[in-house]
Design a protein around this nucleic acid. Structure first.
Length: 284
DNA sequence: GTTTAATGGGTAT
DNA sequence: TACCCCTTAAACT
């Protein structure tokens, strides 16, 4: 797995669900908890058929036969790696593996999740009901950006905080929020109820365009040159390989803004480090 | 060897 | 606002 495996924003979960679905759909893996903390849940689904693996925002759902769904949230530090191997039964356990799926040819190991539970379909409805639209599924009925706008419009919280609220929209995390606000030159501290609707629509459209590039590259691609390059390669059906991840503002505090040269600033907003250019993002 | 930071989020105060 | 959980690896001493 690429070193950006630790990137649990929506694009990571989307790609993970896709890969788990490819590796395990239609199989009945042995599910275990080498670490022990998930032993009971693992026993509930072990040996039953995987019907589908999907995601919504940062939530991963693996549906097993018998109305049992494995609900996983990676949190800040979780990882779920998939290995293809001919000796799956003998794959050594490395580190704290909360949950392992094993078939004859695949092993998937989950480490450090915030949530790992077996739940009912009703619980899944409740989980999904709490989440806002997901820009990775713009055509889904749940993904009407006006649902997010309604919440934004009636909140006096800064837009940088609202973008992190999964009830407003699902899947955006600390990197995408800083980067998308810079890309649109939006002041991160502008209250939701002072934001223009067209500004919100532009943020949404930008996320709809950006997140698939993250899925394709396993990296958060936001800088225009890279965005153009990756979009072109995807369109041409060519393999996309990126070695360096660049950003406009994320983790660039004290460095010169790529556009105006001002020093990039940082401040904790919604419990996490926000990065922005105080000059480029004065208005908006 | 110990401390810290990391792209999250729930709960208590 | 503070504190808690999850795990790993890099950055400290």
């Amino acid at each position: 797995m690429a070193d950006d495996g630790h990137m649990p924003e929506g694009h990571t979960l989307y790609a993970l669900a896709r890969d788990l679905d490819t590796a395990f759909r239609g199989t009945s893996p042995v599910v275990s908890s080498p670490q022990g903390k998930f032993a009971e849940g693992a026993a509930l689904v072990s040996g039953t058929e995987v019907l589908e693996a999907t995601s919504w925002g940062k939530h991963l759902l693996v549906e097993f036969a018998g109305d049992r769904i494995l609900w996983v949230h990676l949190g800040l530090i979780g990882t779920f790696t998939i290995d293809t191997t001919s000796y799956a039964g003998e794959m050594p356990v490395v580190g704290q593996v909360r949950c392992r799926f094993a078939t004859d040819d695949h092993v998937a190991d989950l480490r450090g999740p915030m949530v790992c539970d077996v739940v009912t379909p009703e619980k899944v409805d409740e989980i999904l009901g709490r989440l806002g639209p997901d820009p990775l599924r713009p055509h889904d009925v749940r993904s009407d950006p006006d649902l997010a706008w309604k919440r934004i419009q009636r909140s006096s919280k800064p837009i940088a905080e609202l973008l992190m609220d999964q009830a407003v929209l699902a899947g955006v995390g600390n990197v995408y929020r800083s980067e998308v606000l810079f890309r649109l030159r939006v002041n991160p501290f502008r209250p939701g109820d002072k934001l223009q609707r067209k500004t919100w629509r532009a943020i949404w459209e930008d996320l709809v365009a950006l997140l698939p590039l993250g899925v394709a590259t396993s990296k958060i691609v936001t800088v225009h040159e890279q965005v153009d390059e990756v979009a072109r390669l995807l369109e041409e059906g060519e393999e996309v390989r990126l070695t360096e991840r660049e950003s406009y503002v994320y983790k660039r505090q004290g460095e010169a803004c790529h556009v105006c040269g001002s020093r990039i600033r940082t401040q904790v907003v919604a419990g996490r480090n926000l990065f922005w250019c105080g000059n480029c993002q004065r208005r908006g």
